[in-house]
Computed example of a mutant assay.
Amino acid sequence: MTASDPAPADSSATNPTSPAPTPEVIFLGTGTSVGVPAIGCECDVCQSTDPHNNRTRCSILIRLPEGNLLIDTPPDLRTQLLREKVKLVHAVLFTHEHADHIYGLDDLRLFPFRLGRPVPLYCRADVEARIRTSYDYAFSQREQTHAGSRPQLEILSINNDDPFEVLGVRVTPVPLKHGPHFEVLGFRMGDFAYCTDTNHISETSMDRLRGLDTLVLDALRFTPHPTHFNIDEALEVIEELKPRQAFLTHLGHDIDHGPVEASLPDHVHLAYDGLRLPMPSIA
């Protein structure tokens, strides 16, 4: 499904609403499920004055020639889109059903006015079931009291194996394990891949991640965790896949940006809120 933005193309350099001649990835959020700083925490990172240590819940926006593609709708979505001056989202991909990845969905409510249609949501059946339960009012058959009183959404089913097209770009799903009870999807577009919330990647999925220019990968903290890679585990995956560059995301308050960034291999970096990467290899 594609959609065009009414803003003129020559405004794209300064207006993130407009189509992007060269694809760009914007890291809207790079933090763990409670964010950084965590409420009530007085650790050095949560009290840090380094803006790189302020991390909202995980999401990225990919600016494409045919529109803005959002991955996940975290609870901080409104703040993130305002901060990055993003005025329109054309389509959404969902990695999984957890609260820190879907509970900003209502913030999409304004976009159908500008799109002239419902916002398309691409997700697996388990995510659709959670959305339909958590946002049952969005799918009510009752007549609206006024335009925009509930989100206008179109759910488009995806699965673990079949590539699909969004906004003119081919997307390859990458199944990932998120602890013993949950499966999530990473996504590959061209030579870019986004893999958050995982602590195990099967050989089949590793094969889907070979030959990358840029890999974004979960790395919660230094010590082991039952549902996320830690820093060392993420580095092992990066060493095997050998992307040209890698960025670590879903970072907790164990990770002090400056010292940890300085300790990483030259081609590996910590992602941070507001980071922008040109990604010509996506198209």
Rank of each mutant, 00 (worst) to 15 (best):
M1G: 14
A3C: 05
D5Y: 04
P6D: 07
A7K: 05
P8F: 14
A9P: 10
S12G: 09
S12M: 04
P19T: 12
A20E: 09
P21T: 05
V25C: 06
I26E: 00
L28S: 00
T32H: 11
P37S: 00
A38M: 11
G40R: 06
G40T: 02
C43V: 01
Q47T: 10
T49C: 09
D50L: 08
N53Q: 03
R55S: 00
C58D: 07
L64F: 03
I71L: 09
D76V: 11
L82Q: 15
L82W: 10
R83S: 12
E84Q: 15
L88M: 13
H90R: 15
A91C: 10
L93I: 14
F94R: 13
Y103D: 12
G104T: 06
F111T: 11
V119I: 13
Y122E: 07
R124T: 15
D126W: 11
E128T: 08
E128Y: 08
R130N: 14
I131T: 03
T133E: 15
T133I: 07
S134N: 14
Y135R: 06
D136P: 02
D136M: 01
Q141M: 07
R142S: 05
R142G: 02
E143A: 12
G148Y: 01
S149Y: 12
E154R: 14
L156Y: 00
L156K: 08
N159V: 00
E165M: 02
E165D: 15
V169L: 04
R170D: 15
K177P: 03
K177E: 12
P180N: 05
V184M: 04
V184R: 15
R188F: 01
D191A: 15
Y194D: 01
T198W: 02
S202K: 01
D207W: 10
R208N: 08
R210L: 09
L215P: 14
V216S: 11
V216K: 08
A219N: 13
L220W: 00
T223M: 07
H225R: 12
P226A: 02
P226H: 14
P226Y: 14
P226G: 04
F229M: 07
I231G: 08
A234S: 15
E236A: 13
V237R: 11
F247N: 11
F247P: 05
G252P: 10
H253E: 10
I255D: 03
P265V: 09
A271P: 05
G274R: 09
P278V: 06
P280N: 05
P280D: 08
P280T: 11
S281H: 11
